[in-house]
Design a protein around this nucleic acid. Structure first.
Lengths: 248, 248
DNA sequence: CCATCGTTTCCGGTCAGTGGAAGACTGGGC
DNA sequence: GCCCAGTCTTCCACTGACCGGAAACGATGG
């Protein structure tokens, strides 16, 4: 959308056309949404298909290629973290029976790396690979509380997006919440994204003790907390142990 | 590794340096393994980091960026399929308690899209995003049996890689197996990858009835089959229904 | 049959990308 | 402390890969 210059920028602005709501598009749609001239789009798309970064669907449209899934699976968090964490996420899912999520921080955003949800779970907006701001989700709060000061200040300085009446939008309040998260070792995001859900999140630590990820359970408003908090915290600790925290 | 020419090819040959065994590398390793001159590597890597396709780890090495995870999550199979299938995979996992996998076909290979495995499950070589040939895995056989004739012939014509003494390497035998898979509606891969496991796989159909994916359960050799086969087939049918098979 | 929308091909100018070389930085061997 | 080997970063003049307007091609449908 912005004015791209280098070939790589152009290529990525093409890839950025694909979204959850628009997983397959025609060549001219690609051209329009990316702002690139049609012939340029055509040439670039051909190269990307050649490289399997894009796939041509039977109906002539284009979609993201499996090569990118393959590469994405190598991103930090997907490789080691995901594999080691999955069994414990399963355990947590057994207890909660709603939604269980694993996320890492990328800059000033949360990226979800894994998610387990029940067929009849409260519908959650997040998916694997999707992004959310740090200030309003359970995992976001945990990750933000453990982030470098520069990142925290950067988030606190920017306007905080409101999702519901309960969303924290005051930087002062957010500071307090973060302090509480650090003290307690877990975060609660109560109806900050949707008015029908709240989430409890706990940190996951790597070998050197740094917070590398966060686990959370998302449940319908009204579910009792007393068993949920220990379950989520235990899960976070278990994954941390599996990652070598407190060992060599 | 080949002689790249266009910028995109160069960029992808850089990305291809990353593997499961080598998830983070230094700049000069990147240069060496990709065969690109150091300065070119440096410039390209800088652009890729700018675009978040690569990340710089704290120790100065590079790893695949979360942007690629995000994009990969939009690939066909990851988006609709994965989300709809997950709850049913959970159910199947409850029954088997070992490994449950969901895979799609990409050319003449299987790409795993989702996997659930127990902490103490038999160790399986596959991961999300990883590839395997079509002739020897349960999901591969299901997908190959339903693939266009051109793909089948292409696989049958090429030499079939042997993994264990039980791996099918004769194209004649493979033809018979494929016919059986089509007739029975499921596939069994008995110790064809590792001598300690076998897998049962069933097709997943999309709205128009085409096979779009395959589910499988991987269990230790010796586990009884009589309950496994119906469970896997049922799971395949359930996911197909969730995808709109047999409806509008 | 023509109009419309999407796709593919063509081609000369030009500027983004190239990569050798030289300089900066690190760490570790003695 | 000094040197050296390995790694990373910066610089810059050359050049061929990329650009994109235009025009041909091909469906669809009224």
């Amino acid at each position: 959308m912005t004015t791209p210059k280098s070939l790589l920028e152009r290529a990525f602005s093409l890839l950025s056309v694909f979204t959850v709501d628009r997983p397959a598009v025609t060549l001219s749609e690609l051209s329009r949404h990316s702002g690139l001239p049609l012939s340029t789009t055509h040439r670039l798309v051909a190269s990307l298909v050649e490289l399997r970064a894009l796939d041509r669907t039977p109906d002539g449209r284009y979609s993201v290629g499996l090569r990118l899934l393959e590469l994405g699976a190598l991103s930090p968090g997907s490789l080691d973290l995901r594999d080691r964490a999955l069994p414990f996420l399963e355990d947590l899912y057994e207890v909660t029976r709603h939604n269980v999520q694993l996320a890492v921080r990328d800059g000033t955003e949360v990226v979800y790396v894994e998610r387990i949800s029940a067929r009849d779970a409260v519908n959650v907006v997040t998916r694997v690979g999707s992004r959310m701001p740090l200030h309003c989700t359970g995992v976001g709060l945990v990750l933000l509380a453990a982030a470098p000061v520069a990142v925290q200040e950067s988030v606190l300085a920017a306007p905080l997006k409101r999702y519901t009446p309960k969303t924290i939008v005051s930087s002062g309040e957010l500071r307090e919440v973060l302090a509480r998260v650090r003290r307690d070792g877990y975060a609660v995001s109560d109806r900050q994204i949707e008015m029908i859900t709240y989430s409890v999140a706990a940190p996951v630590r790597g070998q050197n003790g740094d917070v590398v990820a966060a686990v959370s359970a998302v449940v319908p408003t009204g579910t009792r907390t007393d068993t949920l908090v220990p379950a989520v915290r235990t899960c976070g600790l278990a994954i941390s142990r599996a990652l070598g925290w407190g060992a060599g």
